[in-house]
Design a binder for these strands. Sequence first.
DNA 1: CCTACCGATCGGTAGG
DNA 2: CCTACCGATCGGTAGG
Lengths: 200, 200
Amino acid sequence: MSPRKSVAETAATRDRIIGSALALASAEGLEGLTIGRLAADLAMSKAGVIGHFGSKEALQLAVLDAAVERFTLRVPTRAVGARPGTERLARAYDEWIAYMAEGEGHGGCFLTSVATEFDGRPGPVRDAVLAALGTWTAYVKAELDTGIGAGELPEDTDVDQLAFELGGVVLAAGQSVKLHRDPQAPDRARRAVARLLGAP
Amino acid sequence: MSPRKSVAETAATRDRIIGSALALASAEGLEGLTIGRLAADLAMSKAGVIGHFGSKEALQLAVLDAAVERFTLRVPTRAVGARPGTERLARAYDEWIAYMAEGEGHGGCFLTSVATEFDGRPGPVRDAVLAALGTWTAYVKAELDTGIGAGELPEDTDVDQLAFELGGVVLAAGQSVKLHRDPQAPDRARRAVARLLGAP
DNA sequence: CCTACCGATCGGTAGG
DNA sequence: CCTACCGATCGGTAGG
């Protein structure tokens, strides 16, 4: 009867929904995600599911938000112990690559997939994808600048070009993991990153 | 009344359907493609559209097939004039990058997008994507081998690693073009390819 | 969080 | 290639 418990339970249910939605969207895409199938997976009614969000688009944004949060906790957070510059960046990419290889439904490949899925669909979801990607790119460029300042990279390094190529490596890693299920994908991606950043 | 004309007209209608479907699928994805919307775009009935293929999956396969055919005519075919090895390969990638930059609805980015869309959806479409990608990878590796034999690349070049990294560049190019609409994307991608292949 | 329901659209078929 | 139609499912709402 206490409102506290009720609020906590509501939040827990919401988390359960998000978790199932992330797994479903990892397989079928964020647009392929349907409220009916999500409800069936959770043994809930459709109204019970959508009531937490209001609309499918709001659900999609919530799922994307949760995926970004997991990514942030998993990838850059684990790299804070490494020395700023190329060392920290290599560590962050290694974490990302390992996260992707851990399997689907956990969100490892989700962000790269949803970026492709919504690249031709203007709207709030695409905007949120662009915002998340912008945050990551800013992080990468800042570490590259630090690396240049520390003499780890040549003075005339083209930071935008290097960020572009690093982005290509994680996209290739995602495709290798999800489409080809190549067990060598993480190793290949790590070597590509190491070479771009001047080897460890 | 002649059967010839009737057959030709049927084929022309089929081509019109495929063309519209490719444009629609470039924006909404191959799964987001619906028979109803396609019929509306073509000012036809749904039955008139689907009658040419039999099912949505068969339509998807036909669209993918047409995209692969356009790609083959546009990319490797235009590179046959270049010297076998790294020169021809660089030319082929340049053609692909240019094709992507030409705009959407023509299929330039379509193949990389559909590879991501179906990486978690087992079935005939995914199988067809894998087959098309396999053909391309075989082509790339053959040219790399030629390049090694001609001394354009080091003897100990890891062909699989290089093919992986080249794949990353086109994925990054696709994302830059479709998601970021970055006019510098083609130039960045070409530079990345040139560096991987030992500069021209 | 449920039942019960809404109009719209889905892929696809019958029959011509 | 059309009209007319099928059952299923879509996102979402009313009311409790």
